[in-house]
Computed example of a mutant assay.
Amino acid sequence: MAPDFALLGSYLRSRRTRLDPAAFGISAARRRTPGLRREEVAQRASISPTWYTWLEQGRGGAPSAGVLNRLAESLLLTELEREHLFMLALGRLPEVRYRPVEGITSRLQRVLDAFPLSAAIVKTMTWDVVAWNRVAAALLTDYSKLAPENRNILRLLFSSSQVRQAQDDWAKVARVVVGAFRADVTRSGSNEEVSRLVAELSEKSAEFKALWADNEVVAMSEGVKRLHHPVAGIVNLEFSTFAVEGRPELGMVVFNPASPEDASRVQRLLPDS
């Protein structure tokens, strides 16, 4: 999508005029028009009132990402509205910003639970698992038995002997996971959180330290996985990764049995099978 400065100006104006001055400690008396004044928005965003006026008139040019973020905060935009602002001004979505995640909505959990034989998890940009279904608990890891800080895919891959033994080719899996993790955290900008996790893993695992030093970046949107499950035996899976609409800091990964035989092995793991 190409930037559209006329639509950008119209959108900024509509978002400005919907705001209640009283919410910012500003008296609404003697105001002829609703919302904040242009100079008030400009002051909140630390930009020139003249330039902001030009932006609303569709002739201010393309603002930087930093200016757009400040405008989004000044205008109290939601995450979806912020994305729309970036599309109008720059023709692209903003980079994902890291936000600590405590959980997911009950609606999204019901989506996970709707998969009868597919393991499904939701992970953050730092690869903490924040939600899962019963198939994932039976086939991958029972995250409910772990402390929240230990529900991290990297920590499990490099510190859990059980998780390590379940991989058909641990060295290959580890290289791909570290490369995909690097791509995710670079987009998230979560420097402090990532630095702590990388330092911890580098201290505990020479293998992780070496892989991290390689600076390899990998896309892992879909693929195949071969598990050696202690009860079910070898299970072949096809996985796909999905974005969670409105929650850019989250990703959902679904592991589908690759064949009817694999589905039967998964079925036998479930409590009511």
Rank of each mutant, 00 (worst) to 15 (best):
T241F: 09
L154Y: 05
V67T: 14
P148K: 05
A138W: 05
L227Y: 15
L237P: 09
V254M: 13
F208Q: 06
S221P: 04
K209M: 12
A2C: 05
V198Y: 01
S161M: 08
G233V: 03
V173S: 13
T17L: 04
A206V: 15
S273F: 11
P3G: 07
R134Y: 08
R15Q: 11
A42S: 07
D20A: 12
S195N: 14
W127F: 14
Y143E: 08
V254G: 13
L197W: 06
R13A: 10
L8R: 01
R99S: 01
P116K: 09
S195A: 14
V67P: 05
S144F: 04
E245W: 01
R38F: 10
P148N: 05
A180E: 10
T17M: 11
E102G: 14
G58S: 06
S64C: 13
A114S: 15
N133P: 05
R15S: 01
Y11S: 02
E200R: 07
A89S: 05
A6F: 04
A199S: 15
L36D: 03
V235W: 04
M252Y: 01
S48T: 10
A166W: 00
Y98K: 02
S160C: 09
S195V: 10
F158C: 11
A213G: 07
A183F: 13
M125N: 13
Q109C: 01
E200F: 08
D128G: 06
R196T: 11
T105W: 08
L108Q: 04
L36I: 00
V129D: 12
E249D: 12
R15W: 02
W127H: 07
S74Y: 07
V135S: 12
N133Q: 08
H84N: 08
G233D: 05
K172T: 14
R97I: 03
F24T: 00
R16G: 01
Q167P: 05
G233P: 03
E245S: 11
G179P: 06
Y52D: 13
V173W: 10
V41C: 14
V173A: 12
R15M: 13
A23K: 01
L269C: 07
R226P: 04
A65R: 11
L19Y: 03
E238D: 15
L197K: 02
A147G: 04
A72K: 08
D128K: 06
R196G: 12
L80E: 15
Q267L: 11
A120V: 04
T17F: 01
F24Q: 02
I104W: 00
F86W: 05
A114F: 06
E81M: 01
P34G: 00
D20V: 00
F239L: 01
S161T: 10
S118L: 03
E192C: 03
E193A: 15
A243W: 01
R268L: 12
A166V: 06
E39H: 13
L93Q: 09
R13T: 14
V253A: 10
L90R: 15
E203C: 03
E207L: 15
L85V: 03
L157M: 13
F5G: 02
A2P: 09
R164N: 05
V41T: 13
R247V: 05
L93I: 00
Q162S: 14
P63S: 08
F115T: 02
V173N: 09
P63D: 06
A114W: 06
R110P: 02
V177H: 05
G233C: 09
P230R: 09
P21D: 01
A213T: 10
E200M: 06
K225L: 12
A213P: 03
T17G: 05
V178I: 09
R134Q: 10
